[in-house]
Write a protein that binds this DNA or RNA. Structure first.
Lengths: 251, 251
DNA sequence: AGATTGGCGATTGTCAACAATCCGCTTGAC
DNA sequence: GTCAAGCGGATTGTTGACAATCGCCAATCT
């Protein structure tokens, strides 16, 4: 309803648009974790040159949605329980910080925006449609982050959110109690509006605790019964080895 | 002393190495904020093709060390007091989280590594050489992050640290009281070793508070006397507009 | 005089050919 | 039978040429 004015021509570079398409495919589950990706095939499918597609893949790699093994291949990461633990602990921290800042620096506009987002969640729950609830849930959290005006926090949260979505899509962890959704979010919103930064932070952080514990429990379970495979090492850590400490020396 | 074995040939792709060189140039202050960068000139200087250099620039852009204005130019960002506030608030949060996790999941190895890093800081202070102290200071914080084993936290902190270095280099904010350095870090290290996660987190977060307040005060000062320029907007926020919420719809 | 339009130079965006690298397999020796 | 060396195919890395776009400046019109 509000998109009528913003569909101009899309002058953005081709690789950004290609990255958008791939992001959507990954986040929608069209591409499955572990799947190998070849540049030539994807480039042909999207009808762009290999160089352009390459730039798009690099973007996604920086966002953590894809992995690169140099000289060898591209691959969608397989998100383990350990990854889930990392994602949710980080998310809890960022959302806690966002709630804290939001409560501290709230303005009239912020309160209005936040209230509206919360109302949409309530409406979604009333509709009993899980997809809409999930969307409104994410939107509410995103709103809390957005009203802080902390651009780097917003960017960080955006990247993390994408990975969380990627994880959710491939772990059928969508089960949620519709009746609890509202009562779980309401205190956070109230604390922010009331300006109680410490309480808002504590609540927002606690909001992620169940998922953190579930992931931790699943990890412990794996230790006991390593039936599937030895621990899967993501190549993420090898992408940029030792580069920051050396830079200091030149200063 | 330990680099003898790791200088093999460096088979990493050329664009990664080019990115390393540029990173070092930026972090060492060789390139100044606001400076324009043209692909052709830099490519010629580094003796790589434009496409390769382009990939390197894109990497740095993702790391926040450089900005791109599509179809127009590349530019080194000018870090305002607002940026400093963002950097140090985020850093405080990440370091707080790291200290918390480090205290929780500490092992024998962790304690040894941490103690060694702290000892190096003490030695550096004793030498009265500011550069060495600054290096050891950063290294200690990095160690706290590293021993958490939280790969995503480590990556995030690394990116943030680079931007902090970039800021420090261009804001002559290196003044520090050598006598306070040790007494400021010791409680944090002790709390981690003692396993007091809550205390460690609180101390680590408080450690960044002075810089946060300084930046906030400077921002307030700007508001009163906008002698220089109207607020500088980084183009960072415009790089990737509205892309995540839409992706949800497809799910 | 002021505003608008068109062209010009510089810079970035895109592409397709060429080179370098890796993985799996065969081949051969011991 | 086992292991190592080497070959072949597939895939990524790199490059230079070509196309698209932008900002600026001058010429033109009102």
């Amino acid at each position: 309803m509000k998109s009528a004015r913003s569909v101009k021509v899309d002058r953005r570079p081709l690789d950004w648009r290609a990255a958008d398409v791939l992001r959507e495919q990954i986040l929608s589950g069209k591409l499955v974790p572990g799947q190998r990706i070849t540049e030539a095939a994807l480039a042909a499918q999207l009808e762009v040159s290999r160089g352009t597609l390459r730039a798009a893949l690099r973007s996604l790699a920086h966002e953590g949605l894809i992995e690169q093994v140099a000289y060898t291949k591209w691959r969608l990461p397989e998100l383990s329980n350990g990854d889930a633990w990392e994602l949710y602990t980080l998310r809890g921290m960022l959302e806690g910080m966002a709630a804290h800042l939001a409560a501290q620096h709230r303005t009239q506009d912020c309160v209005v925006t936040l209230t509206a987002a919360f109302e949409r969640l309530v409406t979604a729950v009333a509709s009993r449609r899980h997809a809409r609830v999930a969307e409104a849930d994410l939107a509410l959290h995103k709103t809390i982050v957005a009203i802080t005006g902390h651009q780097r926090l917003i960017d960080q949260y955006h990247l993390l959110e994408q990975q969380v979505c990627h994880y959710i899509v491939h772990s059928n962890a969508l089960i949620m109690d519709l009746n609890q959704i509202v009562s779980e979010h309401e205190p956070i919103v109230r604390a922010i509006i009331a300006g109680d930064a410490v309480k808002a932070e504590r609540l927002a952080r606690a909001h992620n605790a169940p998922e953190v514990e579930r992931a931790a429990a699943a990890m412990a379970q794996e230790q006991v019964e390593p039936a599937t495979e030895p621990p899967i090492r993501t190549t993420r850590s090898k992408q940029r080895p030792k580069a920051a400490t050396r830079a200091r020396k030149a200063a």
